[in-house]
Design a protein around this nucleic acid. Structure first.
Lengths: 242, 242
DNA sequence: CAGTTCATATAGCATTGCTATAGGTGCTAG
DNA sequence: CTAGCACCTATAGCAATGCTATATGAACTG
């Protein structure tokens, strides 16, 4: 009813499926909806795509090309790690813009299509990480780094998609992103959790903060605020609390 | 036909659903399979759970309790960051042991159940990270750290589930895990810090004090004073300056 | 025993993905 | 122009799905 352009039925089916998928808010999309919207009857769908999943795979393939295009479409900055950041952000943005499509691509686990897509996405990132490795900025194999970063990237994107759009905090993304990039570009994180049994209590923490504040001239508080703040800090740090 | 124990039908339905889900290899599980296996007819299912999704939610809830039990069942080592590692590994192991259940819990995006589950899992991890913060071992807010780590944890687990069990490489997990923990930890290691994402000691101390205050109910400040104090503390600990 | 409530069963509805079969449509060959 | 042929599409319907209107049984309460 809606897509009456002169496009061939195959394309109309693809577009109808993509559009319905994009607006379905997670609800399943039936073949009857798709065929009706494409102005076509059922056998046409099965003639061209064999299967409902076949049609969805085609939609995903198209979506993935768009994704790849987005991941390539910025000029390399000459700083590979900076490019990785942009790839990460592009990935998240793609997921937030087309959540349903993203879920079919990265959320569902269908032993057929997903590994291929994930592998391609990994290759894309590995390619970029290779430049970083050549520039001596990596301390792990590019492939391992790509897998690790992509896994975190997917996890963050899924988490952001899952929560209501209102209180989506993109800081989760940037923070995780920088953590991952830092980790593959810095010293190996192997022994990063030593004892250092700090049994800090309120008092100890307050004293530490007090000392640190004195030494750093933080300008987050005005001088009058700082005065009162330090007074309270003193009160806390001389209390018998535990 | 298979579950003829004297258990009440409600339990038999739960067990039948869980077992079928566990062995379904991703294929959808029909209510008829479930009811037949439980030796019960359809209306019984809908009487007890209202919905197919209701039944699955109940299965998920049971699975989540198992998950939580696993996450709590080790004695705290006294080294919070080490405990976080064990939580991470437990999470991955849980996903690999019960992939289908895990997918329903963390893979699917159903605006109803998933956020609640994720929020609980986050709370679980935040609780542990709080101890790290009190000990002055965090350089970010425990809540943000928990969200970030959990996102990466889920992403890694999904990725591992997706690939054939034969060439599953757990190094992806340990590497990503250590990267995340290293990134949120208050750099107790040597002064390497190439990217210098290391926050100043002021921030670390402020975060530690904040966490300690939350946990200790110190009464040295009145509630109104405390409110303002915490606000300033937050300002300091989210300061961009280094 | 009558009445109420809870729990299960009988039978069937609407929708789903999919298909057996048949009917156009456009081509090239004679 | 017709005959054959390959391609594409429609009519009609099947089996399986999630779910329900209704009725039957059991168990407790007065």
């Amino acid at each position: 009813m809606s897509l009456d352009g002169q496009l061939p039925p195959k394309m109309r089916l693809l577009r109808a499926a993509a559009e319905l998928l994009a607006n379905s808010a997670g609800a399943p999309v039936s073949t009857r909806q798709i065929t009706q919207r494409a102005g076509v009857t059922a056998p046409t769908l099965y003639h061209h795509f064999g299967d409902k999943e076949g049609l969805f795979d085609a939609v995903v393939a198209a979506g993935f090309e768009e994704y790849v295009a987005g991941e390539r479409d910025f000029a390399p900055s000459g700083q590979p790690l900076e490019d990785i950041r942009r790839m990460w952000d592009n990935h998240v943005q793609f997921g937030l813009n087309q959540p349903e499509l993203y879920l079919v691509m990265f959320g569902n686990i269908r032993p057929e299509s997903r590994p291929a897509i994930v592998a391609d996405a990994e290759a894309l990132m590995e390619e970029m990480l290779n430049k970083a490795a050549v520039a001596g900025q990596l301390n792990v194999q590019p492939r391992e780094a790509a897998r690790s970063i992509l896994a975190a990237n997917v996890g963050v994107t899924l988490m952001l998609i899952a929560e209501p759009a209102s209180d989506r905090n993109l800081e989760l993304s940037t923070m995780t992103r920088d953590a991952m990039i830092f980790a593959v570009s810095a010293e190996p994180a192997s022994g990063a959790a030593p004892g250092d049994t700090g049994k800090s209590s309120v008092v100890v923490a307050a004293i530490a903060l007090n000392a640190a504040l004195q030494a750093s001239h933080s300008d987050q508080l005005s001088s009058s605020e700082l005065k009162l703040f330090l007074e309270w800090l003193h009160r806390i740090s001389t209390s018998p609390a535990g």
